[in-house]
Write a protein that binds this DNA or RNA. Structure first.
Lengths: 337, 337
DNA sequence: TTCGGCAATCGTAACGTTACGATTATAAAA
DNA sequence: TTTTATAATCGTAACGTTACGATTGCCGAA
């Protein structure tokens, strides 16, 4: 934005016959400057509509007051991952409250994740980074740790290094979901996962495996589906399972879209959730409760995840060498009515 | 990001015994500098990993290469407006391609819209602004025009000034939807709108009114519902209509959430879309096509809206005094199968 | 009176970049 | 040989801010 008539320190200083230094200090209530002077400076600053120039300050101090979140975007499907919306809203709001701006860097499936992060590092345009969608052995963690850039990840990974993250306890949620399905009498329980290397899916698989092992039920690999975040793939996958000779009686869904897909597949066959197949899903958006279907729901507060991410990142920026903060959030279960 | 060992022009200049000026020019292929020098400079720049300092450049040139989108966020409901997700993705991607970063400024219902814009103006941290959710007589337009800040609006308003916008032709879509419902034999057609002063809703109401007038059907105000973007309100509203003595036989939904709510209300009464009530909805996310229900759909490509917004804003920044560009996008109709 | 100590303010330099006029070297024209 | 044009490069200033050491004026202690 240009409109060159922007007030600056020099103008205020000239008007009051003070030095730029004194004005600068007065505006941040520096103890070196006389209270009466502070008052005069602030009065003029307000009158001329002074707002500190972000770039002058950033250049001098090295801080940008900007955070960048790297978010993957699915170009195949406009619906993308619904959880991203409350996540973005939570992050932007928390960032704003903490005095930061949040910029979103969307990556397409064509983008190399490491390269994207590298580019952001090079640009040095943010004080900190938020990375999401962690994969097994995620190389971005090492890159960011090496460069000593404050960052926080949404999700853990299987690396043997400590780094700041916020995560949902996917293992526990999947364990719990599987158990609840078994409580309904299900023994053939289908599990919906995302792409294979997705770390959240790995955790979910672990929780599912633990529950099955405890119940002494052998795992049937054909019941475990890997897909993308879209509804299409969910419909096709679950439809195939339903068509098999020994169809599942229980289903643990990955998210809203997976759930909608599965319901679609059920509906086409005249089957009913809660009667023919028991369903438990993870819900990031409170969408599931509005569906006319009996399903158990693990709700996850993604806006809270966003808040926590910013909080952790902020503490990291304030104290880059401090202890590594990690947060693990639980889901909240609402049974099928 | 600190890691103070950041390469700058001075270092490159020193290494090559050149002046900072020449290096700066060489890196942007200035015609004043010898091709062989350009090559040498670029080689060193690449080796030391030089990346231009954003703030130094912004301070000097007055350009920030940053755009800010002001997006309202519904705190009542995590689902918020689903259309925002593809919109954000479209904008961030287009911005990136145009060499800009996009920052998101989420406003809560508590925030005063004008004040939010004013704050962003004061901060001077962006080269341009994107405003959304236009209301009748939107005061932000005058504010932004007065301050000569490049901006683009998602949506028109009823002001008598020219300003750059991208909009969906809501009037035409509502007109079309109403006609299609009448083609199915509906005469009592319910219309789902958002809050009263929302400008998009006003356009939709106009289109509905035009279609009804052409068909000679008087408008029954009780069939026109004003609500929020949530599903709850949609369920309650449509349920009340269905319970009335003369229930509607057609329904034009505002968006996905409104549709899901209406379907919920129908399902509870054992009614079926396409048989008992004909439904046409606007769909911003391609969600509707996955629902096991016969509904007509006007699909709107929100990612494209995002692209267009950035495009218009970019041209505005490049030429602030040029002609005011406006874009009006049509929906694409997919009939109930 | 002279000095130390303190409060209040000032001046300069620096962050990294770009704009612009000045300077040098080179080659062609007189 | 001197002039003139041109190509290549340089130096300085500026954008708005903050850090830091220097300076001023004043009061009380010696």
């Amino acid at each position: 934005m240009k409109s060159g008539d922007m007030a600056n320190l020099k103008q205020i200083a000239a008007e009051l016959s003070l030095s730029v230094t004194t004005v600068s200090r007065a505006l941040k209530d520096g103890p070196e400057v006389q209270p009466s002077t502070i008052a005069r400076v602030k009065e003029v600053a307000k009158r001329v509509g002074y707002v500190p120039n972000h770039h002058g300050r950033a250049l001098k101090t090295g801080r940008t007051l900007m955070l960048t979140a790297v978010l993957p975007m699915e170009t195949r499907d406009y619906l993308s991952d619904l959880a991203k919306l409350p996540l973005i809203e939570g992050m932007t709001l928390a960032a704003r409250q903490a005095g930061y701006s949040l910029s979103i860097y969307s990556t397409t499936p064509d983008d190399d994740p490491v390269e994207s992060v590298q580019r952001l590092l090079d640009a040095r345009s943010a004080d900190g980074l938020i990375i999401t969608r962690m994969v097994s052995g995620d190389p971005r963690v090492k890159l960011l740790l090496d460069q000593r850039i404050p960052f926080v990840a949404f999700g853990r990974t299987d690396l043997d290094v400590a780094y700041p993250y916020v995560d949902i306890d996917n293992e526990q949620i999947a364990y719990d979901a599987t158990q609840r399905l078994m409580d309904k009498g299900c023994r053939r329980i289908a599990l919906q996962l995302l792409v294979a290397k997705d770390q959240a899916s790995a955790m979910r698989l672990a929780g599912y495996g633990r529950a099955m092992a405890e119940a002494g039920i052998p795992i049937d690999q054909s019941l475990i589906g890997h897909g993308t975040f879209t509804m299409e793939s969910s419909v096709a996958w679950f439809d195939r399972l339903l068509a098999s000779s020994d169809p599942p009686t229980g289903l643990a869904c990955a998210n809203e879209l997976g759930l909608l897909g599965a319901l679609h597949a059920l509906g086409r066959r005249g089957l009913e959730p809660g009667r023919d197949v028991h369903i438990v899903t993870r819900d990031n958006t409170r969408l599931a409760r509005f569906l006319p279907a009996k399903i158990g729901v693990h709700s996850v507060d993604m806006a809270d995840v966003g808040h926590k991410l910013i909080e952790v990142l902020e503490s990291r920026i304030a104290n880059p060498l401090g202890p590594v903060v990690t947060v693990l959030l639980q889901g909240k279960f609402d049974p099928a009515e």
